[in-house]
């Protein structure tokens, strides 16, 4: 494969192939930063991949108290799914089980869009008749009495059909330590990009997959071409100087957010250089025929 070398890091002339998704954004607040974050962490747990989790979700960033609707510390979370129905189901289950239950929490929509999903409009029934509806201007809230006071929840949240899921970077390094360092640096830089999340643990996935399997029941299986221990046994994509590969997957509310996150990650990896970090960066695609969004790495070099 042709490569471009930047600061000693080889960038493959390839692209990440991504897919349309549905996505929404919420602001969760709490009595302090710790409990705002706890609600967000719990709600976005077990949400790495739509394949097994039903949705992909993570924290987009912290929101200062002065910028939240109720003046308390907040956290912005993004949730993505393949269909509007899936997103609706996941959203109400997760807010209901993880945010409603979290001490002192409140839940606000943070995406204005023509299409809406129900949040408080469904969770209000928990109030068993004691729930109170409040409207002001074009915003509608439900107040649900709970044991520590009231759970305040916006009735609906906007969602976009223009979200993009599956942007990715394959980070290849000499050994485990250096590759992880490069991946961590990339995630840290990408966390600064608004409207984009990296849903895997700490933003990093070590078990990248390919489409299909030798077993009929499985749709996806290990990406053997990038497994260092299978070099020589399979048609490998790895060079002799690569001992470890980690992947970062990106979901964004817009195509631009995914591109910006990819750009930020690439810049951080290149800045770190091959001595302490990655020797090569590649990206995953399916030949370009499955997903409509193509993020060419060479176009995203700062």
């Amino acid at each position: 494969m042709r490569t471009i070398t930047k600061n000693g890091v080889r960038i493959d002339d390839t692209f990440a192939e991504a897919f349309p998704m549905r996505g929404t954004a919420l602001i969760l607040t709490g009595p302090n930063k710790r409990w705002a974050r706890q609600a967000a962490v719990t709600m976005t747990g077990f949400a790495t991949s739509v394949i097994g989790c039903g949705c992909e979700a993570s924290i987009d960033g912290e929101v200062e108290a002065r910028d939240t609707p109720d003046g308390r510390p907040g956290v912005r979370v993004l949730i993505f799914a393949m269909s509007s129905n899936d997103l609706q189901t996941q959203l109400v289950n997760r807010v209901g089980q993880c945010v409603l239950t979290s001490p002192g929490s409140a839940c606000f929509s943070d995406l204005v869009a023509a299409d809406a999903l129900k949040v408080g409009d469904l969770l209000r029934y928990f109030g068993d008749g004691w729930q109170i509806s409040k409207k002001f201007g074009n915003r509608h809230f439900w107040r649900v009495p709970v044991m520590d006071g009231e759970f305040l929840c916006e009735a609906t949240t906007g969602f976009t059909k223009g979200a993009v899921g599956g942007g990715n970077l394959l980070i290849c390094g000499a050994d485990y330590e250096k590759t992880l360092r490069a991946a961590e640096a990339a995630v840290e830089a990408m966390n600064e990009v608004r409207d984009a999340i990296m849903p895997f643990p700490g933003g990093i996935v070590r078990s990248g997959s390919k489409v299909g399997s030798k077993y009929k029941a499985l749709h996806a299986s290990t990406n053997d071409a990038f497994c260092p221990s299978l070099r020589g046994m399979t048609k490998t994509a790895l060079d002799d100087d690569i001992g470890c590969v980690l992947e970062i997957v990106i979901d964004g509310l817009t195509e631009a957010a995914v591109a910006d996150a990819t750009r930020a990650g690439l810049a951080a990896i290149i800045k770190l250089g091959p001595r302490n970090g990655a020797r090569r960066v590649s990206a995953g695609n399916y030949g370009g025929k499955l997903g409509p969004f193509h993020f060419h790495l060479k176009d995203l070099l700062a």
């Binding site: 607040t29 609707p69 109720d70 003046g71 308390r72 409140a106 409040k134 002001f136 201007g137 915003r139 809230f141 107040r143 520590d148 006071g149 009231e150 305040l152």
Partner: peptide, 13 residues
């Protein structure tokens, strides 16, 4: 005594 985010949100509006 009343504990809720509602007064803060409404007050800001």
């Amino acid at each position: 005594q009343f504990a809720s985010s509602f007064p803060a949100v409404f007050g800001r509006f």
